[in-house]
Design a protein around this nucleic acid. Structure first.
Lengths: 220, 220
DNA sequence: TTTAAATTTAAACAAACGTTTAATTTAAAC
DNA sequence: GTTTAAATTAAACGTTTGTTTAAATTTAAA
């Protein structure tokens, strides 16, 4: 029943893309994340996506607009995911865990696009529209802040915390590991990409949950 | 007396660069960090550094080797800084604060180069030698781990911690804020670059110290 | 002052870049 | 079967890329 609302509200906004366009978007996402926006040529994208070079201009207008399309395709509907967690009737501690877990899962799912954003957002020469991304960041931080404030009012959470920086610790810890994958694979003794992937979604997520809980909870 | 050792031990390794070379390195660092390695042309570097384009090949061999030279120029001697903190006779809690503060200050000082590394390290197409960087990472994490283990043996630190991930939380939190500077400037009401800079070295550093202490210390 | 090496320069190089063109094919509507 | 618009193609466009060349200039030692 909920997914119904999601489909009807968001798909029209996001899914004006046909199969071939999505194919291009996915290849672009992979290559932009792996070898950078400037490092990736439209010819490389076209070859990997098995389409003619001109199709990228034909469908998206330009390489920069292709990136903007990718952002819209990936960055939307996070607010909705957040709210499905927030409306649940759970104790603050469990809800906090669920919140962090959702954030890590979400970022992990869209890690490639977020890696691109992390790098391109502060690139002043670029003409990319990051409004959708900034809005998402604002939304998520707003909901976190409200939840933390609520917990503080009810005496469950500590008050001497930099609430506005909690999100940075969650996402930052994730990306520091993800951006240094070869290093952490060696350090943690993970010898396959699957083992690394699994570690990110279990131990790393748990470490981040533990970190945020340590900051917010008084000793049991 | 200590700076003597430093000068005689390290300068020869690092400082085979003349003034003009250092000029090029600093401009390259700025541009690589601001608009990316691929986004920066050697002509742009040459113009900004006020030298002829050919001088970059003449001095460094290639654009990639220029980046390698920059890494060597910036990434060395961290181990030494770490050890000056570790040999101090301080209580574990204070030493932990000093350690985190050193890490943030160090990263902040070399933030541009580290931003470049964060992005280029996992770029598989690149032929850059990151050994110096990886060694530094290993060194710092090794020293942190040993210190934490010592604190745990003495009952000062908790034992249920992902010790190997502490560094990721410290550096990750820093970079998540730094890489989203415009966003956090707005969010935190910092209206100048100086105010942002100041926040990074005070409130943000304090938040990270608090985070690590929350993870490691039992309630007072 | 002469000489040789190091530095600096403008010009040229081929290769790769993002994008556009104009011709051709495909697919659906009539 | 014809018409019409959308999709697809190969080729070409003018720039920009990193790098090299070979000549000119500066520097410093003999």
């Amino acid at each position: 029943m909920f997914s119904f609302v999601l489909v009807f509200n968001l798909r029209p906004l996001l899914m004006d893309f046909n199969e071939k366009q999505i194919q291009i978007l996915k290849v672009a996402e992979k290559l932009f994340a792996e070898i950078g926006f400037d490092g990736t040529s439209v010819r490389h994208i076209a070859k990997e996506a098995d389409v003619n070079v001109a199709m990228i201009s034909y469908y998206f207008g330009s390489k920069e607009k292709l990136l903007e399309a990718l952002l819209l395709y990936r960055v939307a509907d996070f607010k909705m995911e957040l709210e499905t967690v927030m409306v649940q009737n759970l104790p603050h501690v469990e809800k906090l865990d669920a919140l962090v877990s959702l954030m890590v899962n979400r970022i992990h799912r869209n890690r490639r696009t977020h890696k691109i954003i992390n790098y391109e957002y502060t690139n002043t020469c670029r003409q990319i529209d990051f409004d959708a991304y900034v809005e998402q960041k604002k939304d998520s931080l707003g909901i976190i802040e409200a939840f933390v404030k609520d917990g503080q009012n009810k005496g469950v959470f500590k008050t001497d915390v930099h609430t506005k920086l909690l999100g940075a610790t969650v996402i930052g810890t994730y990306f520091q590991v993800y951006n240094n994958k070869p290093f952490y694979k060696k350090l943690l003794g993970l010898d396959s990409d699957e083992a690394f992937e699994n570690y990110m979604l279990t131990s790393l997520t748990q470490h981040i949950q533990q970190t945020i809980k340590s900051l917010l909870l008084n000793e049991k």
